[in-house]
Computed example of a mutant assay.
Amino acid sequence: MLLDIVFVACGLVGLYFGAEWLLRGSVALAWRLAIPTLIVSLVIVGFGTSMPELLVSVRAALSGSSDIALGNVVGSNAANILLIIGVCALISPITHWDKSVRRDVWMMLAASALLLVLVQFSVIGRLAGLGMAVILFAYLAYTYWQGKQRVEELNADLEPDDIKHESLTPGFTALLILGGLATLFIGAELLVRGSTSLARDFGVSEAVIGLTVVAIGTSLPELATGIMSAMKRHSDIMIGNIIGSNIFNILFILGVTAMLQPISVDPRFGSFDVPIMLAVTVAFAALLLGNLGVRRIVAGLMLIVYAGYTVMLVQV
C-alpha cells in the first residue's frame, strides 16, 4: 500500500512538471514559428493543460479501467469550475472579462450536454469518439476564422511575462517539449497504477478514484495557471483556461480515448456524476452569460459545494 501511495504522489508530481515543461516549450516553439497568439491560446495552451487528462484517460482505458478514464474527465471538469475557479476568485474576484467568451461558453455547454447523452449508453464507441474530435476541430477552425481579425489586438494586450518564450534557445525548447512528454507519460503510468491499486485495497470504486484523486491531480496545470492569472488579475486568461480545458477534456480527451479503446460506461455516470457536472457547468455559464461574474462570496460557495460533492461521491 505504501508503494501505491508513493506511485500516486510521484505521478501527480510528474503530471504537474511534465505539463509545465510541455506548455513552456510548445508556446516557445509557436512564437519561434510565428504562430498567432490566438492559436497559441486556443490550441497550445488548451491542449497543453489537458495533456495529463489525455494520457491518464488513454492509459486507463487501454488497461481496462474505463471508470477511471471517464471519471477523470467528468471529475476534472467539475473541479475546474468549483475548485479552481473558486480558489482563483477568492484571490481575485472575476468582475471584468472579454465578453466574446460567450461563444466558448455556449460550446462548453453543448459539449457537456453531449456527454450527458453519450453516458446514457453502455459504451462510448469509436464512432462517437470520432464525432467528438470532428466537432472540436470544426469549432477551432471556426474560432480561428472568426477571431483572426483580432490577432494584432490580442498580441498588443498580452504582457511580456504572460508567455515566456523570448529567452529559450531552440535546443532548450526541444528539451522542454520532449522532457515534458516523457515526464507526462511516466506520471500518467504511475498515477493510474497507484490509484487503481489503492481503490482495490480500500474497497473504493475506480469511478470514485477517477472522479477525485485522479481528476484533481490532472487538473494541477489548470490550477497553477489559474492562480498565476488571478494574482496578476487577468480574468480573461483565468476564464479562458477553464472553459478551453473543459471543452478539450470532453471533445478531445474522450474522443481520442474512445477512438483508441471504446469506453464502458458505469450507470452511475448517467444518473449522477455527469448530471452534477452539467449542473455545475450551467451555473458557471449563467454567471458569465448574465454578466454577474464570480465574487468572493460565490467563490466560497463553490468550494463548499465541491467539498460536499466529494463527500457524496463516496456515499453513492
Rank of each mutant, 00 (worst) to 15 (best):
M1S: 15
L2C: 01
L3K: 09
I5S: 12
F7H: 11
V13L: 15
G14L: 02
L15V: 06
Y16L: 15
A19V: 03
A19T: 04
L22M: 14
L22W: 06
L22G: 07
L22C: 10
R24L: 15
S26Q: 06
A34H: 12
P36W: 07
L38P: 00
S41L: 14
V43E: 08
I44V: 13
G46T: 06
F47W: 12
T49Y: 01
M51W: 09
L54V: 01
L54H: 03
L54A: 09
S57P: 03
V58F: 05
A60K: 03
A61D: 10
L62S: 11
D67S: 12
V74E: 06
S76K: 08
S76R: 00
L83A: 15
L83M: 15
I84S: 09
V87F: 13
A89E: 05
I91T: 02
I94F: 03
I94V: 15
I94Y: 00
T95Q: 14
W97C: 02
V101F: 05
R102Y: 06
R102N: 10
R103Q: 10
L109Q: 00
A110H: 03
A111T: 08
V117D: 01
V119L: 07
V119M: 13
F121T: 13
V123I: 15
I124W: 08
G125I: 04
A128C: 11
M132F: 13
V134T: 11
I135W: 13
F137S: 14
F137H: 08
L140W: 08
A141D: 02
A141M: 06
Y144A: 10
R150P: 00
V151S: 11
E152G: 07
E153K: 11
E153I: 07
L154E: 15
A156P: 00
P160M: 07
P160N: 12
P160T: 08
D161E: 15
D161R: 08
D162Q: 14
K164Q: 15
E166G: 11
S167M: 13
L168Q: 12
L168A: 10
F172R: 15
L176Q: 03
G180I: 04
L181H: 00
L184E: 09
L184Q: 05
F185H: 09
A188D: 04
A188F: 02
V192K: 08
R193L: 12
S195N: 05
A199N: 04
D201S: 14
I209F: 10
G210R: 08
L211H: 05
I216W: 13
T218A: 07
S219G: 06
P221V: 01
A224F: 15
H234C: 02
S235T: 06
M238Y: 04
N241W: 09
I242L: 14
I242C: 10
I247R: 03
I247Q: 03
F248H: 13
N249H: 02
I250K: 08
L251G: 02
F252E: 07
F252M: 15
I253A: 07
L254P: 05
G255T: 01
G255M: 10
T257Q: 02
V265G: 05
S271K: 05
P275R: 05
M277G: 07
A279P: 11
V280F: 09
V282L: 14
A283N: 01
A283L: 15
A285S: 13
L287D: 12
L287P: 01
N291A: 13
N291C: 09
N291V: 04
G293T: 07
V294N: 04
R296C: 03
I297C: 10
V298Y: 13
L301C: 13
I304E: 09
A307G: 06
A307K: 00
M312R: 11
V314D: 01
